[in-house]
């Protein structure tokens, strides 16, 4: 039995709007051990909101409610904003979806990574510089020295995302929440980045929450998968058994993918059943 790093029970995320309260996440429960947990679903299914709610990154008027979100026994819901800042980055780190909005546009990449490192470690500038170079090379960025001098707009989307990953891994957190970390990357680099994350999870006993819409990637890379639809978990399964998934929503997603080995004239389009969003959430606890 794996030790439980994170235990989330009955998580709700609500946004009051002019047309009443919108429930983005509706009563989701799951646990995370020292494993790679995938959360898949379409945009709007609440998967990113789940990730953000764990770090309490949802700002008012958004409301987060949960019976508990406990990180190794400590309930994050009860922490003050100041104590929460010590958790973010240091203990739970998050790689966001879009590097364009996550990197500071008026700071060189080198300065940003050095800042991330020095916030959490007392190191001299020279040490931090070397460590940052090392980290950039670890996420397979060629000519890291030029990249250190460059500004975010000079980077391609894929490079930006790798820089984000480097920056988030440099404080050496216990849990990494990766929100679509590789959706901007191409298959060959995707594999490399995943291998780097995989190595860290294994070596340092990190827990990884991997949020993605890419079913094949999740099936390949994670240990366990939660499938979310309109704020609820509709199915939980072992990643290697994802292709045998039973829920019609999961099946529909799998069938809408183009495949190299099975060419078709037209792709299957997902038909949605309103019942899917009414069924109670499945628990993802181990």
């Amino acid at each position: 039995m794996m030790s439980t790093l994170l235990d989330v029970q009955n998580l709700w995320v609500r946004f009051p709007t002019r047309n009443g309260v919108f429930d983005a996440v509706r009563g989701v429960s799951f646990t995370l051990g020292r494993e790679r947990l995938g959360i898949v679903g379409e945009s709007g299914s609440g998967k990113s909101m789940t990730g953000r709610a764990i770090l309490r990154l949802i700002r008012p008027p958004g409301i987060v409610e949960a019976d508990q979100i406990s990180l190794e026994g400590q309930d994050l819901m009860k922490l003050s904003e100041k104590d929460m800042r010590a958790v973010r980055g240091q203990r739970i780190s998050m790689v966001m979806q879009d590097p364009k909005f996550s990197l500071n546009p008026v700071m060189t990449i080198g300065d940003q990574i050095i800042e991330a490192y020095r916030l959490h470690n007392s190191a001299s500038k020279a040490d931090a510089y070397n460590k940052s170079l090392e980290m950039l090379e670890a996420v397979s960025i060629r000519d890291a020295e030029r990249v250190m001098r460059a500004y975010p707009h000079e980077m391609s989307g894929g490079m930006g995302q790798r820089i984000m990953i480097a920056m988030m891994l440099i404080p050496n957190p216990e849990i990494l929440i990766a929100d679509e970390p590789t959706s901007a990357l191409d298959v060959s680099v995707q594999r490399q980045v995943l291998d780097i994350m995989d190595k860290l999870v294994k070596e340092r006993g990190m827990g990884l929450i991997f949020i993605s819409h890419d079913l094949n990637l999740v099936a390949d890379f994670c240990d366990r998968v939660l499938i979310m639809y309109s704020g609820r978990i509709v199915e939980v399964c072992d990643a290697d058994k994802l292709h045998e998934a039973k829920h019609p929503y999961t099946r529909g997603l799998l069938n809408s993918l183009p495949r190299l080995d099975a060419p078709r004239d037209r792709l299957e389009v997902l038909e949605r059943d309103p019942e899917w969003s009414e069924a109670p959430s499945v628990s993802g606890s181990e």
């Binding site: 379409e42 191409d186 997603l253 809408s256 037209r266 792709l267 299957e268």
Partner: peptide
């Protein structure tokens, strides 16, 4: 992926109807 299927179908139909030529960049081989 579900929306991708719709858009790819749309692009295929438009090409058939109008005899368009496509030059398409993608990182997704499938």
């Amino acid at each position: 992926v579900s929306v991708q299927a719709e858009i790819l179908n749309l692009l295929a139909d438009l090409r058939n109807d109008r005899g368009l030529t496509y030059l398409m960049v993608s990182h997704d081989l499938s």
